[in-house]
Design a protein around this nucleic acid. Structure first.
Lengths: 340, 340
DNA sequence: ACTGGCACTCGATACGGTCGAGTGCCAAGG
DNA sequence: CCTTGGCACTCGACCGTATCGAGTGCCAGT
């Protein structure tokens, strides 16, 4: 299985050429475009070995070679150098948040920026509630029996929920409720709140007991348990580049997958600190996305991670460039968030 | 010019068959599938006239006929009967909001419902701020120099904006500000607020003057002037049905258009009361959407309109069915909103 | 171990012929 | 005058054949 250096060079050359031209690459073209220092025949022998090992394959006999998912994997792991960003990209990234204050704004700009730079589908997860702490809880009376619960997290996320009270509450009641929940929950991480909320209900003065109970259930159910994740998406039109050659002609399954938030979360939500994930073709768990690759990473202020972001494209993508861009954007978003 | 009844029947038959089969329809097939009571030759003569008048055309000589945009237009205006909803559709619509409390929830369910029922791309505009009144304005202190402005509209929309104060404000200051803005703006329509906001700044006590000024500018700029519209989209995967036959093979321009909020707004945002708009192919102002048709209408509680919704699909769509569905969903959403 | 040569494969392209759906036109008939 | 059957014509779809060329695998020679 020893793949000597030249064979690896050949694989690298194949990947690079195929990504660039989108056409199967043959031995002759290869030696012409790269200085391999050997003849086409030698390259052919190397190719035969690479094919036997499953790194490349022939679409048809008498066609050039195309990298397999396994080939891309090897390329990504061992053969690609980090491609430095172009000055233009660097500038675009640095400029993307000019005038962005709101978290919404930051996320939207980020996802568009990613889509534009990579020319692929970009996905950005809002800072996860699971990794957020409560900065403030606000109760806004809508009517005597309706409250708007507004939660502001330290990550900048703002969520509101309508609370339908079992009985009318006075203005003073609302003030008391607000004080109580903030005393108990302010500054606490959301994942730590369940027992605290439980205690809140039990310790509430009898007059507020039932109101507090409904409030608590809204808090727990919608903000903690099914910890609502939000996701922004952009660049789906990029799927339709490459004139139907990628994705064997049908965008349908991919577009379908992209409409499922659960799937998007799976793609970019499970991230380890300081890691960048590349899932190539078959490595994807979602069947509809077996023809695509996903490059994702986590982001957050400083070293902590509050959410994930990434891009999705054809397996035949410019991995070094994409990886560099995703990493740079993630780092930059983290810096932006740190400033708040 | 005079298109007698039979010619119209022929046109109707052509449209119906073409929509159903997606293949050019010939004279013989027509008389077989519909009881026209005449021979193919007669139908051919009628077809020749219809073609001369621009209602149908031949993809190639010796192929069947296909409706033109103009043909669809005539069909929609004069030839199609309203198709009653199937019981299943009726049930789906009535069930779509079970458990929906939040406006967000209602909008998301609506857009998914529409996409599912029509099997096309669905677009739903959130209730427009331009048509909303202020129910309540809340100011939540984040730090001494930062406030979160939360506006709750009568339509259920909730918007928040970060306000960066020029100088620290005490808790009492915030309370005063909150009281002042609510006194002045509570219940007012958003479009009527500019002069009121102006007055607010002028009448504010000196100590609050500068804080009120920044608050006012955030209010005016982000909520009134560039009256932020929000839009939900679903069903883009449906574009990829019809095996690339519609849209002459490239989804790209359409997907691109769908990523622009401005364009979506144009599509469904300009609605007259009690009207349902059908824009067919060329009638669309947006170049990228010249190959699509859009069926849209307004919705709102009772007779008022607070926003638009609609669907987008190939010109070759089931107009009667789509129109019926869009109308029914819009009416139902209106009812739901009226209950709040 | 590399290289040049060579026979071979097979997709892409072009060409020719057939088939059939569909048309337009016309003359005959109600 | 409208309708109809008949008929010649068009042209895309389909199929088989032939050619071309990019690319391969193998082998013998250095």
């Amino acid at each position: 299985m020893g793949l000597d250096d030249r064979k690896l060079d050949v694989l690298r050359a194949i990947v690079e050429d195929y990504v660039a031209t989108q056409e199967p690459v043959g031995s002759k073209a290869l030696v012409e475009r790269h200085q391999l220092g050997v003849s086409p025949a030698t390259v052919r022998n190397d190719m035969a070995v690479l094919e036997e090992e499953g790194y490349i394959r022939q679409p048809h006999t008498s066609a050039g070679r195309v990298p397999t998912d396994r080939g891309y994997r090897l390329f990504v792991d061992r053969l690609s150098r980090v491609k430095p960003l172009t000055p233009a990209e660097r500038r675009a990234i640095e400029r993307f948040l000019v005038g962005a204050v709101d978290l919404d704004d930051v996320v939207h700009r980020t996802v568009r920026l990613l889509a534009q730079l990579t020319r692929q589908v970009a996905v950005v997860q809002y800072p996860s509630l699971a990794r957020s702490s409560v900065r403030h809880l606000e109760l806004v009376p809508i009517s005597t029996t309706r409250l708007m619960l507004v939660m502001i997290a330290d990550t900048g996320r703002v969520e509101q929920r309508l609370v339908e009270l079992p009985a009318p509450a006075s203005a003073d009641d609302v003030i008391d409720l607000r004080r109580l929940v903030n005393e108990r929950l302010g500054g606490k991480r959301l994942v730590d709140t369940p027992p605290l909320v439980q205690a809140l209900v039990e310790e509430a003065p009898p007059a507020l007991r039932s109101a507090m109970a409904t409030l608590a259930s809204v808090l727990l159910e919608t903000l903690v348990e099914r910890h609502e994740e939000r996701i922004a998406l952009a660049g789906t039109a990029n799927l339709a580049r490459g004139g139907l050659l990628d994705f064997q002609g049908s965008l349908r399954p991919i577009l379908e997958a992209l409409e499922e938030e659960v799937i998007l979360l799976k793609l970019i939500g499970e991230v380890e600190p300081n890691t960048l994930q590349v899932r190539i073709g078959d490595e994807n768990e979602i069947d509809n996305l077996r023809a695509t690759s996903v490059v994702s990473t986590g982001y957050g202020p400083g070293a902590t991670i509050v959410g994930g972001l990434g891009v999705l494209g054809p397996t035949r993508m410019d991995y070094p460039g994409t990886i560099a861009t995703v990493r740079a954007v993630a780092r930059y978003v983290g810096d932006v968030l740190a400033q708040n």
